[in-house]
Design a protein around this nucleic acid. Structure first.
Lengths: 160, 160
DNA sequence: TATTGTTATACTCTATAACTATA
DNA sequence: TATAGTTATAGAGTATAACAATA
């Protein structure tokens, strides 16, 4: 008997089915990404650290709040993440002389190098897994992901 | 959001562009999901705990390896997650009398109740954010996400 | 011996609350 | 007082290595 086959049928509509898929699939993808990021000897870095590094590269001289905003985390979390990057010599953190309570973050050469290497590697690793998928399908997935990120992000900051 | 511009930047190929999108977007979505899961008073539960609970509901009597496999984590990680669920009275963990090194996991009534409530709530929260999106777009996103999860998952277990 | 699971240990991410320093 | 960051504290996720118990 159809266990009151709630989920599988159309009850709830497209949005609900999409939400269910998000809840079910995104954590799994996340885990794969994390794994790909860690494999192989090179200096390990976590996904948040990777994203913080990328943010600093794109916003050199940016402050901690910028990192926190980009990552969507609270200030102490961002502080801790940046601190680890500083301790590894990947990021430079100095007080802004004009606004001494701000910090100015920049990549060290080692940070820039590592970021470039990791970025290429992680992308390549994920790329490999997608290599045999038809381009049309990939374009659809890319567009869908971008749209979803945009949709979910747009209100995420408004209540934080 | 007319994401038609993909074709113009042909540099790198579809797979690479898709990988870049995954790396950039999935962590952000993940953070939104985590947030939605925590908001409001009710008993808090993390995403992995939620997924473990859902697994146990769908595989009553399953062992720890099942949970680990489903979550894609190492046995000690699964053990710790299940342990927290047991301590909260959401899951029952007993030795299998027939295979005494296995554990038999089942939901307690409280666990089943909580799972149902959280599932509905989390889905509803994400659903709200997708409510104004055209159904056709949502269907595309759902399908793309499912496909992506499938693609990335299929080799994930093979080298673990 | 091979398996299932747990403990021990060590990091990281994360949040809230309390604090410092600056404006 | 209000803002930018940090420290203190606590809890969760995660992995590896070492272990126990069972088959």
């Amino acid at each position: 008997m159809a266990i009151r086959a709630v989920a599988s049928t159309d009850r709830g509509g497209a949005a609900e089915r999409c939400a269910r898929e998000v809840l079910d699939t995104v954590p799994q993808i996340m885990r794969v990404v994390r794994r790909e990021m860690r494999r192989e000897g090179g200096p390990l870095i976590s996904v948040p650290q990777f994203r913080a590094l990328a943010y600093v590269r794109r916003h050199p001289g940016g402050g901690l709040s910028g990192v926190a905003g980009h990552l969507g985390v609270a200030p102490p979390t961002a502080s801790a993440i940046v601190d680890r990057l500083v301790r590894r010599g990947l990021v430079d953190r100095v007080s802004d002389p004009a606004e001494r309570r701000r910090v100015v973050l920049t990549l060290t050469p080692a940070g820039a190098r590592l970021l470039a290497r990791l970025r290429a590697r992680a992308q390549q690793r994920v790329t490999v897994r997608l290599a045999r998928v038809p381009a049309a399908e990939l374009r659809r997935i890319t567009a869908a992901l971008a749209a979803l990120g945009h949709l979910l992000r747009e209100e995420a900051g408004s209540d934080a």
